[in-house]
Amino acid sequence: MRKYVPKDDVQKKSYYTDRFWVAPQVAKSPVESDDVFASDLAAIKAKFEVIDSYIQVEQMVVVINPADNYAVAQILKDECDYNQLSECSAIDWLAKKGQFEVFYQFLSMSKRKRVRIKCFIDKDQAVESLNPLYRSADWAEREMYDMLGVKVNNHPYMKRILMPDDWVGHPLLKTYPLQGDEAASWYEVDRIYGKEARDIIGPENREPAEVNRYDTERFGRLGHEVSRGEEFKEDQAAKPLGYQEEGGVFAVSKFQEDDAVVITDRKR
């Protein structure tokens, strides 16, 4: 469990900063407890090294060497009848282990079972593409590259899929700042107007609750209004809010509480 930290000042921060929190693990059970999974695991173990294997939330998880990922997927598809690659992506463990965890989630329609194949790769290591086996790997691997910078060998079109092609950095890395790095904060200005326009357009305003009474172009102070763009002075004369019916206009008069009569006798 995560260590308890007092949350008294949580409203003062714009967002929660504890981003390396790891959820407690669900209980694991051995693969032998399920016959279908046990035979699938035996098929993989017959040809390739299995580093770890267990069942978690009714799904088998198998950790293999990254070099075997294509061949293991082929076994799962051809021999074990896992006919769908439902998800494939990576997890950034660079701060903890210096590695990425690449995972592939398979589904067997006939067996109604799900298997997750995992492998750990180093920062600059590439994995083999599963695109020839499963067409869904095409976009999933591109997203993995786009978001985390994990490169994929023999992919037909290894380009970014979500971010623009000239984007700098990979946003799902834990080291990537949430509000973007230098290149990200000026991206649209540089792209459209060029770097020269940075001074004119100015930096991004990342403070959503910003109020600046001296900025009379964009803000007004209630009761101390000045016209737009005029300089606001500290001793600005107060302009009290008034209502037009205060003195009374045609057919409208303000209700005066002192003049009100409270009726106590109902039969009056």
């Binding site: 990537y176 790095d181 990200a184 959503p208």
Partner: peptide, 17 residues
């Protein structure tokens, strides 16, 4: 202003463009 999307991928107000 970018609204609640105070992130790397959102333009913080169309008046920047």
């Amino acid at each position: 202003t970018g609204g609640m999307f105070n992130t790397y991928a959102t333009v913080q107000g169309v008046d920047r463009v």
